[in-house]
Design a protein around this nucleic acid. Sequence first.
DNA 1: ACTAGAATGAACTCGTGAGTTCAGTTGCGT
DNA 2: ACGCAACTGAACTCACGAGTTCATTCTAGT
Lengths: 247, 247
Amino acid sequence: MSSVASSSPGDGPGGSRGSGKPKGAPRGRVDKREAILRAAFAVFSRRGYAQACVQEIAEEAGVAKPTVYNHLNDKESLFRHAVEAEADALLAEVLAAVEQLRDRPRDEDPRDALTDLAQRLAGSWCGERARALRRLAYAQVAQFPDLAESVQDRVAQRPAAALADRLARLSLAGRLRPCDPELAAEHFFALLTGPLESRSRLGTRRVPAAELRATAEAAVDVFLRAYASHGDSADSADSGGGRGGGG
Amino acid sequence: MSSVASSSPGDGPGGSRGSGKPKGAPRGRVDKREAILRAAFAVFSRRGYAQACVQEIAEEAGVAKPTVYNHLNDKESLFRHAVEAEADALLAEVLAAVEQLRDRPRDEDPRDALTDLAQRLAGSWCGERARALRRLAYAQVAQFPDLAESVQDRVAQRPAAALADRLARLSLAGRLRPCDPELAAEHFFALLTGPLESRSRLGTRRVPAAELRATAEAAVDVFLRAYASHGDSADSADSGGGRGGGG
DNA sequence: ACTAGAATGAACTCGTGAGTTCAGTTGCGT
DNA sequence: ACGCAACTGAACTCACGAGTTCATTCTAGT
């Protein structure tokens, strides 16, 4: 799961310090490193890369500035490691949601499973962490394009691939019409996240839970009208509020 | 098509400044202001807000630094004006594309009109200007939330509203099933821009024209399967590669 | 030609923040 | 008790960039 090639020069304190210690854990005292990375992400996400200052990160981590530089070479690697770690965490969260489709009863209406999924994804997507990740990655595309790609991979590409797997099974089982699963997954995510991005106005507005739910349902609704097999439930008379969403 | 700054109007510093010749560079007062704003957007978009320096903007505009401050108070207002101007231009471009739906023959297959629209929107969306706008607005959300909202309004909200108008007409004319036009417009944009964002990997990858076209067609395809009225053409046997299988 | 004002280049002030240095402190293993 | 290595706080260097000042130069309007 660890992503970043771990041995940047000067990555850790005891990396290959002196004579081989049978320690196992290369770090000296405690897990300052994790605290530092967590603090770094927090500060970066509220200030942005350029506006964040290392001193503040150190304070937030409860650590002295030289300690920060003792663990990570410079501001850039601080940024990269913090962002990648958080992207990994988000990926795990999202993959867990997608993988839930696996243990659904085989004869269940796909709508129920997909609605569940959409709800969970909507939650993740609008969460503080996800928003900050997208913002930071997007903002620094010019400076760290490889980082942006790596984040995009974890936040979009790989979740889509995982969903494509599940959709392929549904399609094979006749619950979805025959289709390109990659494309279908792409559309599923688009129908969900596009409206969310718009509703939250780039994150400047808090989307109420009810609207979140409605958006997820509308996404599933449209998705199924396009992708459900003919025999299956792909019709809900109005599309205005999703299924049962009379309001 | 005014792409970006017209190279160096004149010649840059040191050229006209000699002891004798008033040749070549007419450094008279023209619309320096526009040149400055265009240059500012160009520099901001390749460097980001914090990394951009006013000196570079001045050079790109073919102007001295004090002149920049003579027209705009400080870096922040430079940023705001540059971004808003560019957002206005993009809005006009997008609205023009949407308004084209107006003068389509009333009995035409909506698919043709929507496909045309999707192609044009895809072009705009992936253009240098649109990408830079999204990136800058997104990046500075924390620092200038009002600016981000204003950009989002011009880039997403208002185009969606305009499209909703057109979709309402189509729906009323029986070419689309009865639906909430706002929601439909939201879904249309989502189906288009979501995949584009993903394919371009946040702008780090250039999307070939063919893929762009295929993505647009796939979006329209799904949209129509969900929103076409029953009598109309909402079926293309395979969804794998869009209609006609782009190669 | 004369004048007013916009524009210029260069040098300046000043704040900020990255990264370092260092002398001293703490905690753990032996 | 000793020593090692991480940790600390504070003060430091250094580069960079926002914004200003100024003497000068150019252009337009009359």
